[in-house]
Design a protein around this nucleic acid. Structure first.
Lengths: 116, 116
DNA sequence: ATGACGTGCAATCCTGGGGTTGCAGGAACG
DNA sequence: CGTTCCTGCAACCCCAGGATTGCACGTCAT
């Protein structure tokens, strides 16, 4: 996953209302902006904007059916983002392990100077 | 990981400057707010605020040494957050699979009514 | 064709939070 | 002791973006 797309996912998931939208879509499988707005304390327009952000992040996709647009979640993208974060975590761990090792070798070199 | 903490992690990671701070901390292992500010186009105060947010999310921890405070990353928390997202993704997949199965059984039931 | 319903676009409002400045308080060092 | 350096607190500025309203356009039903 490209770094910019991971960023988009993080930004998208940072909004409480958007997370709620994802929850709703996960339960319903598929829903339009209007019906989703009915379950939230916000306007349809707000929902539309949020869905656009989620779409940019690849977390949601919409298909036009007749006069309405139905949206559904895209689990693969979320899974990719999770993998990206996991990789980042392991990279950090490697760094910290290296630093710890370095510190210990330094202690060995100086150990007669730090008796207690 | 509690839902609210996952939320905190997502909010924390949504800011570009905060992600940069995490990168810097990962390379340096440990650094103070002042030195970090030297590597970024922002003030020390801004860095301090960001570090506070990262600390609330559990992504960073600071220890006082003498007159300065040194911060380092906490990979476990990021790994936890990644796991949380991954679980969410699999939950969505299960939902979608169930809905797809339902749709196919409905098709079976109606197949003589949709000849092509 | 007429009405009802759903979407799309544009202008607008307003709060949250990222960023800054200024100053006070402690810790190191001469 | 005074000086220097780093942290901590508080007030303030500013704008991205979350939310609303109003209207025009396309689609289905009667």
């Amino acid at each position: 996953m490209s770094r910019s797309l991971l960023d988009a996912v993080l930004v998208a998931l940072a909004e409480p209302t958007r997370r709620q939208l994802l929850d709703l879509l996960a339960e319903r499988g598929e829903a339009s902006a209007s019906t989703l707005a009915g379950a939230l304390p916000v306007t349809r327009q707000a929902v539309v904007k949020h869905l656009a952000v989620l779409d940019d992040a690849g977390l949601v996709s919409g298909r036009r059916v007749g006069r309405e647009v139905l949206y559904r979640t895209r689990p693969e993208r979320l899974a990719e983002a999770a993998r990206g974060m996991s990789e980042l975590a392991t990279a950090w761990e490697a760094r910290l392990a290296a630093i710890k090792a370095l510190a210990e070798s330094a202690d060995h070199h100086d150990d007669r100077a730090t008796p207690s």
